[in-house]
């Protein structure tokens, strides 16, 4: 049996924050506490990919177990309930009420401890980055911690046999498909139109009520006050990127002059001749 762990992060829906709001916030802190949280989109692609893999695995005679883990607040358990309703077997929340940001080393450390303490996994599936931090570090850091290979920019996972999966992933100038020996970490890239399927209310009633495992951070041997731990990068300053467009008026005697100015000042170098 292939046992797959899907790791996901719940992030604020940044689209809900208005332009004024971005601009008004003081330096060093974006208050996203009032914004509705969503599944980080790359993680969402990964979870749906796991379900598809599981749907198809029957044809290959490869039994699959899907588990999920997330670090965060109680609110995140709604997503774990959804995953239960969709057929996941074990769902765990690593309890953390604090908002930890810009600290991927911490996340990877906790996940690796969690994996050391639970049963063996053959495959870890996770998004390649989260929309708020945009570091893309956790999958590689976890791979380093576990001493596993990591394939990034994955767009499709196909069953092969009990010791291998076939993976399609994006590279600089195209796509590669390889047979990958397990265990391995798959970091999910841009997969167009991949939304997590929606469980029916019946499935929620029948399967979604299963107990969610809760793990405390100190039980993983990590101090909850993070003593002795320090991120690779410490945030010094945050400033808003002006998204407005200036609307500079290009004047000229006639259309020819304006076109000439447009080309020389703005298009040259920006577009190919």
């Amino acid at each position: 049996m292939i046992r797959i762990l899907g790791s996901f992060k719940v992030v604020p829906d940044l689209d809900q924050i208005s332009e004024e709001e971005w601009a008004s916030d003081p330096a060093n802190r974006i208050d996203t506490s009032y914004v509705k949280k969503i599944l980080s989109c790359y993680d969402e692609s990964g979870l749906e990919m796991m379900l598809k893999f599981s749907d198809e695995s029957g044809d290959f005679g490869v039994p699959v177990q899907l588990d999920a883990v997330t670090i965060g607040r109680k609110m995140n358990e709604n997503y774990l309930k959804t995953l239960y309703a969709l057929g996941f077997t074990e769902a765990t929340r690593i309890e953390c009420e604090k908002e930890i940001q810009f600290w991927p080393e911490w996340t990877a450390g906790i996940l690796s401890e969690f994996m050391n303490q639970t049963e063996r996994y053959d495959l870890v599936v996770m998004g390649n980055r989260s929309a708020d931090e945009e570091n893309g570090k956790v999958p590689f850091l976890l791979a380093e911690e576990l001493g596993w290979p990591c394939i990034s920019q994955v767009v499709e996972i196909i069953p092969e046999d009990e010791a291998h999966v076939k993976v399609r992933y994006e590279v600089d100038n195209g796509y590669c498909t390889s047979v990958v020996q397990l265990p391995c970490i798959l970091s999910i890239g841009d997969v167009p139109c991949s939304f997590l399927r929606v469980p029916t209310l019946k499935d929620r009633m029948q399967k979604g009520k299963k107990e969610i495992h809760r793990v405390k951070i100190e039980d993983l041997g990590i101090s909850e006050t993070f003593e002795g731990l320090q991120p690779d990068l410490s945030l010094v300053n945050l400033e808003v990127i002006d998204q407005s467009r200036p609307g500079v008026i290009l004047d000229g005697m006639n259309a020819e002059e304006k076109a000439e100015k447009l080309y020389q000042t703005y298009l040259k170098g920006r577009v190919e001749l």
Partner: peptide, 20 residues
């Protein structure tokens, strides 16, 4: 060593100090 990078879906520019 200081670095700057875009965060929050390109809404903000963050400056970080690299530690090690």
């Amino acid at each position: 060593v200081y670095v700057k990078k875009q965060v929050y879906s390109n809404h903000m520019m963050a400056t970080f100090c690299m530690e090690n």
